[in-house]
Design a protein around this nucleic acid. Structure first.
Lengths: 215, 215
DNA sequence: ACCTGAACACCGTTCAAGT
DNA sequence: ACCTGAACACCGTTCAAGT
């Protein structure tokens, strides 16, 4: 039962990443947890990059499992976007991975699903690619920032604490140079990350809606 | 004249990063170029992270130098966004940095300038924060993806070659699972990254325009 | 076929010693 | 005050040797 397998390795890697962040994953720690040496792992995964991709895929597979067939396209897009957001929230390290992975399997799957819904939205052919790209890039941008925010705090710090730190920094900025950041520092403290993320998705969807040709 | 200084170190780091990508920067190579040992560099920069931040700041300072006072807010936002895009295009490694830097000095400066223009656009107070965040996250998302795309190819590969590789991969996908990606593979080959980036900015701006209260 | 663990290469960082 | 370069710690990866 102690037999090594790609699945066990990936699951253990996810556990290490969740517990200690991206710095927590290395082949010695992984080997120790699996009661083997670092070399054994290479029989099952090609290298560290391969392992990180597999770990990201494993975590995102669940997030993308929600079936949205039958939902109106706008709702399907919001559900999909929130699925990615919540997955990054629960596992901040995948935000970094998504930002690096350009056009790799998982990103492509998200892009495909967004694209199908954009099509269902009735967006003219020529504009579908731009619209789907805008949504994907926005989602990946937020994922990357959330990962960066999480990384800037010790692992396990609550979202409220992270926000509090940033809000305090903004409130202290030079009013002459940073009037906007100072003005929104209060809103930042009160705000809901997830709702703001969705507001951004809705903003892009509202922009996409203006593309529809008059019927 | 051989005297070490923070400026010389940062400039040399930028040169290394531009030439060989993120993998090209290490303290031994940097020391060799500066005709000194790795330890000397630490007298002027705190650590590698500090150095990368300084290198990103140096490169982006130029990009953000364009004066947009007097321009209509939409134009100012487009100019600013394109400034970041072009800087990432010329120095792909800053895309990775921007994706990691959350709320650090440079990102904050971009956010501030976007925010001021959003305000000038007449967006209601309560929605300004969401609107500026959406624009920033989109810009950073594209920056991260462009950096990832550049990293996936040997340094110096032209954008057209990168796009060609991705387009070929998309065209080969399973039509049952990836109808959308396959359908846009042709558009991808013909498309202009920069124009698509701007189309995304315009989409968000169009969404923001729907927020304006009826005057 | 799969595992073991020592060894190699590379790198960020420190620090005692110099000027 | 600033530089030198050896040394330390850590890590990804390889590989000869085992079962």
């Amino acid at each position: 039962m102690g037999a090594l397998s790609r699945e066990r390795i990936v699951a253990t890697a996810v556990a290490l990443l969740d517990a200690d962040g991206e710095a927590g994953l290395n082949f010695r720690a992984l080997g120790a947890r699996l009661r083997t040496g670092p070399g054994a792992i290479y029989w099952h995964v090609a290298n560290k990059s391969d392992l990180l991709v597999a770990a990201t895929d494993a975590v995102l597979a669940d997030a993308l499992a929600a079936d949205t067939t039958g939902h109106p396209p706008r709702e399907a897009i919001r559900t999909l976007a929130l699925g990615v957001f919540d997955a990054v929230d629960a596992h901040p390290w995948i935000g970094t991975q998504l930002a690096r992975l350009a056009s790799q399997a998982t990103t492509l799957r998200v892009f495909e699903r967004i694209g199908q819904q954009v099509r269902a939205l009735g967006v003219p052919d020529a504009a579908q690619f731009d619209a789907a790209s805008a949504l994907l890039n926005y989602i990946l941008g937020v994922a990357g920032q959330n990962a960066a925010n999480a990384r800037s705090q010790p692992p396990g710090t609550s979202r409220a604490e992270v926000i509090g730190t940033v809000a305090a920094r903004w409130a202290d900025l030079d009013p002459a140079e940073y009037p906007f950041a100072r003005a929104v520092a209060e809103q930042l403290r009160a705000h809901d990350d997830r709702a703001q993320f969705l507001a951004g998705v809705d903003l892009i969807l509202a922009g996409i809606a203006t593309l529809r040709p008059p019927s």
